[in-house]
Amino acid sequence: MIGYLLFFMIFASAVFSIITENVTSLCDAAVASGQNAVELCLSIAGAMAVWGGVMRVAEVSGLTEKLTKILSPMLSKIFRGIDKNSYTLQKIAMNVSANLLGLGNAATPLGISAMKSLAEEEKTNLATKNMTLLMVLNSCSVQIIPTTVAALRQAAGSRSPMEILPCVLIVSLCSLAIAMAAAEILYIGGRREN
């Protein structure tokens, strides 16, 4: 899929540059693209490493567990019909806290295991409202500090790479609210109500 898209982009570029007689800059771009990719990768690698290090300390020292405890009561209001003392809710809370802290590596396995225990608890392998809500919580990228974006901005010479932080937080919370509302609406009268 992505292969076709990229081939189409390169094909369109070739046609376009022949029409506009701009072939030299196309050639330059093709030659420079590898270097650009390495530069882009390196410019975010350092910041990702530092942040990954700090967040590993948070994980090992039990800070994510604390966050999980704070989040649990809130999440039990969102995921209705689940046993409050079950592992499921705890796993969801762990998944959300990992996401908040930007621990992508840790968040995915936690989320998958939360999804599995939701399926077990609701005794179905058809997507229920709670599963959709868990999905949406993960696809809306609510995180306290968008490190990758900030690193890219820094690399591009931004005067204030972190200035986007409040905007990112507000936009992701709003889009999460809308996605959750959409999930609620889509499951009105739908299968397997909880």
Binding site: L5, L6, M9, I10, A12, S13, A14, F16, S17, T20, N22, S25, L26, D28, A29, A30, A32, S33, G34, N36, A37, L40
Partner: peptide, 10 residues
């Protein structure tokens, strides 16, 4: 970056 770079440069 090959695709995007060429697309932009053209």
């Amino acid at each position: 970056m090959l695709g995007i770079g060429m697309f932009r440069a053209s």
